[in-house]
Design a binder for these strands. Structure first.
Lengths: 221, 221
DNA sequence: CCTAATGTACGAACCGGTGAGTTAGTCATA
DNA sequence: TATGACTAACTCACCGGTTCGTACATTAGG
């Protein structure tokens, strides 16, 4: 019979640098998201991988660099997802609503990423600042917003003076808050913002909010 | 000449339990907001007060309870501020806008509080759950919203199906995100959401967003 | 004189990090 | 294809500083 404690080796290799590093990053992502930067334990990350703490230092250098690597990969996933956005065949109103909905979905599907961003903000975004990759990662979603907005403004559908970065902030704020602050909000107001039964309600609310803001005639300034 | 290292004793008392506790809470608020729960150091808090670590344990019991006490006081300040809200003499549209602006101002003026809330969410709001005070603290602002909303809906100014808690979430999301995520947002998009020169712009944006959402005629559902 | 308030000193576990040695995989060469 | 040299990948054992928490002594003040 086959030994029970012999670990599975999916690709047949006992030594596999890429797989070991990926496994460390997976577990580290969970651990940092669970407990925050200082609350996370390097020993705990090591214990939950098939490798040892020594390897974490071998590949990443230290806890700080490991967290940076976790952030880099998490932001990379976001960018890759955003690059597959396909909304520009829609009319501007439908395109913006769809983009908001996809942003909404993405936040809901990646609570660990939201937590990492919260944690990084607690630390003043110092790891992003220290990362070469993250400095020039860009935002495909922002480019999409920029183009839709220009098109909608040109055709007179949208209010003229709305900025793409501001609109992105508005959409992100709603999506982010709903996930990031669900615990305190739930405890204080007795309402779970991530209750599946309320999902469609909040998704529609976001779309309505953005579209009414974009299409309203604003008082002359 | 007077000894330089003799600390000032403003009220003449050397032993003053209330002042000692308040001083511990002040410093602990800064330290927890600076570094997060696990990043905060009890020794550091003690060093920055005129008392010793022993007194922190004497009065609060431990680090966990100290953080809970910090949260309780911070939320208490919010509630007291909200209780002084005076917007209901305005017409519903102006009242909601004014309320949103005051929420905006309050978030901007209390970044430490925002950080504490972020930290508490990282930890699943477990300290709020453990606190008797915080369970029943209520929210005067929410009561105000509820009344203005009802009045505006009755007079047909506001869309009928908007809920007070949802509106409060919408306003808070914008205000919270702007302060809480300013570091990552700034690093990634090169825009400081808390730049004083942009303050009026974002304040107006929030008001416009809320009012256009509330007064739009929504498509029949 | 009694007790709440405070100071001192220290313990014990924890935790990030490392020194030193070992093995698996690869590749050049005969 | 057999072999031996070489390096990346990995294991094991350990260290030293840090950090929460506390036992015990002391003092201010009513």
């Amino acid at each position: 019979m086959t030994s029970v404690d012999e670990p599975a080796r999916p690709n047949g290799r006992i030594r596999d640098a890429a797989r070991t590093q990926a496994e460390i990053l997976d577990v580290a992502t969970q651990e940092f998201a669970r407990a925050g930067y200082d609350g996370a334990r390097v020993d705990e990350i090591a214990a939950r991988t098939r490798t040892t703490k020594r390897m974490i230092y071998y590949y990443f250098g230290g806890k700080e660099q490991l967290f940076t690597a976790v952030l880099e990969r998490a932001y990379g996933v976001i960018r890759d997802t955003e690059q597959q956005l396909d909304v520009e065949h829609l009319d501007p109103v439908a395109a913006i609503r769809r983009l908001a909905e996809l942003t909404f979905d993405h936040h809901e599907q990646h609570p660990d990423f939201i937590r990492l961003v919260s944690i990084e903000n607690i630390h003043g975004a110092e790891h992003i600042a220290a990362s070469e990759k993250l400095g020039k990662i860009g935002s495909p979603a922002l480019d999409v917003i920029r183009r839709i907005l220009a098109s909608g403004q040109e055709s007179g559908l949208f209010t003229a003076d709305v900025d793409a970065v501001d609109l992105h902030a508005m959409i992100s704020a709603f999506c982010f808050f709903r996930v990031a602050n669900r615990h305190t909000f739930g405890a204080l107001f007795g309402r779970d913002l991530v209750d599946p039964a309320q999902r469609e309600h909040y998704r529609a609310m976001l779309g309505d909010m953005v579209i009414t803001y974009l299409t309203a005639e604003r008082a002359a300034q």
